[in-house]
Each structure stands twice: as C-alpha cells, then as structure tokens.
Design a protein around this nucleic acid. Structure first.
Length: 284
DNA sequence: CGTCATGTTAAGGA
DNA sequence: TTCCTTAACATGAC
C-alpha cells in the first residue's frame, strides 16, 4: 500500500502501539525480505532493543531503537514494496499467508505480509541515506526544486519519482500532482520555470495532504480482515470507499473524460511506468 | 494464453 | 564519472 500518504497513515497508527515495546525475536520466512542483511544479522542487531520512536522517511518507516536505556544507534528500516502490509497482532495468532518477516514484541508481533516480496525489514541504511526532502515539510522550497531540476534532461514525471530529490511521491501522486499543477509529464525537467516549480510544489502538497486527510477519515482495516481496494484497506464499518477511478483525477483514467475539460485522458509509458495526463489541460 | 500492477535498484550504454 | 534507460525482482488479478 505504498506511497507517502498511506505510509504516513500507517505510521500514525503504529506510533502509539509500538513505542516502548521491546523486540524479543525476529522470524524471517523469506531471506530476501531482509536483504541486504541476513536473518542472523537482523536478529543480532534487533534483539533486546526497545522501540523509542516510529518515524517516516519518504515511503520508509524507521524504528529508532535503544538498548538498556541508551541510544543504540540502530534502527529498523521498513519498506512495503508494492504489496506489503504491516499487521500488529497477538503473539499467539496463526501465521498469515505471504508473511515474510515477524518481529516478536512480547504480547504482540509486528508482521510483514507481502505477496510480491518487494518489501523488506532491514538494518542497512543505504536506502534512506540519500533520500531527498519530504514534500509535506516546509523545507521543500521552490529554489530547491528548481535547482535540482536544472541539470536534468529527463522528463519532470521521472524526476518526481526520483526519491533522491523529493522522497515519497510514487506513480499515482506524480500523475495527480502534475495534473493539479497543469504541467505535462513529458516536459523536460530543465525547461521548467521557477513559477512552474512553485506551482508544482503547491500541487504536490495539496494532493498528498488531501489523501492523508481522506485516509484519516476512513475506517481503515489494520487487522487485514477485508481485501484491499487498491490503495487503502477498509474495515467492515461501512466506509464506502471510492475506487481509484473516482478518487483520482487522471491516474488509471485512460480514455475517461477529464474532469475539467472532458478531453479523454491520455496514457503513455515513461521510464517503463504508466503515465496518465490530460493533453489539453497539461500541454507541452 | 497475455497484460498490468502503489517500488527500488542492478546492469549496461552513452 | 555521471547521467539515463531498461528490465529484473515475484505473484496475482483480470
């Protein structure tokens, strides 16, 4: 369930439930799900550590750990990949299908269920060391984005997916933010004016915050009792969710009418990812 | 059968 | 060296 809004919602849910817990053990069902660590390395670094804080960095969840009351300078880095879901369940619960890793926390366990196995639990920090700025933080400025785009001949859409510039935007919200700012995904990054960058940043923040608010207002299914709708997971308490074609302006809406001008939404491939936009509202 | 999927990153070419 | 593009990874849905 992986872009910034979903991870932020998940982080807020986990924070009060994980902080203060002590890691008593780690069970690795799929060694690849802890790469580049080994199960032994993971256990060695995590055993007896206390979870001090739960943070989000881009699409990663980071648990800061301590040992015997002292900062142990170790952290558990969690990424959900494409299909990963985290569950907190009683230690006695039976193992779900597709469970790849389980952290024993005493009375409860934090488990990663991940059908495609692109997600992981790791103590290796290379994947978060060079992440770019967080888009819902004030540190992301027009000058920063403008300067980071100057040297690139790639399309702006591809640059939005580059986690080293802005961390947390994925294929869905890249499309939505570009539509919101009326910028074509095909525009070359270095061709954007400062004013385009300013508009784009406003659009990114708007689109991400709207989605976080949407998710917070829903009855999300963190117990995993109901199937996914493709973005968030909904509980049985009757929150009717809109499908992606209703909640998004362009993503997944190829050939459907643009909500602004009714022009059929276009679809193309950029950097081997599907890319949706309105040819008329987002001219080149 | 084939195509597509919210992400990251290795490999190879320019 | 740096930048860029493509495809691999693994599994299921349609």
């Amino acid at each position: 369930m992986p872009e910034l809004p979903e991870i932020e919602i998940l982080k807020r849910h986990l924070e009060p439930r994980l902080e203060g817990s002590t890691i008593q053990g780690v069970t690795v069902f799929h060694p690849r799900s802890v790469r580049p660590d080994t199960p032994e390395k993971l256990l060695e670094v995590l055993a007896d550590r206390r979870i001090q804080t739960v943070q989000r960095r881009g699409k990663f969840i980071v648990l800061q750990l301590s040992l015997n009351g002292r900062d142990s300078h170790s952290q558990l880095i969690i990424h959900l990949g494409m299909t990963g879901r985290l569950f907190l369940e009683p230690a006695s619960a039976s193992i779900r299908k597709h469970t790849t890793v389980s952290l024993s926390l005493g009375k409860q366990a934090l488990i990663l269920k991940d059908m495609r196995k692109f997600g992981r639990f790791t103590v290796d920090t290379t994947s978060i060391d060079k992440l770019g700025l967080d888009p819902i933080d004030d540190s992301l400025t027009t000058s920063y984005l403008f300067s980071r785009l100057q040297s690139s001949r790639q399309s702006i859409k591809v640059k939005l997916l580059d986690q080293h510039i802005i961390a947390g935007i994925g294929n869905i919200y890249a499309a939505e933010a570009l539509f919101e700012s009326r910028i074509s995904p095909n525009r070359k990054a270095h061709e954007l004016m400062r004013t385009d960058c300013a508009r784009l940043i406003r659009a990114i923040k708007k689109v991400l915050k709207k989605s976080i608010r949407f998710g917070q207002g829903l009855d999300l299914d963190f117990a995993g009792d109901t199937p996914s709708n493709g973005l968030f997971y909904f509980g049985s308490h009757g929150t009717r969710s809109a499908g992606s074609s209703e909640r998004f302006a362009v993503y997944g809406r190829e050939k459907n009418p643009c909500r602004i001008c009714a022009t059929p939404i276009s679809r193309t491939i950029l950097a081997s990812r599907a890319t949706f936009w309105c040819h008329s509202c987002q001219p080149n």
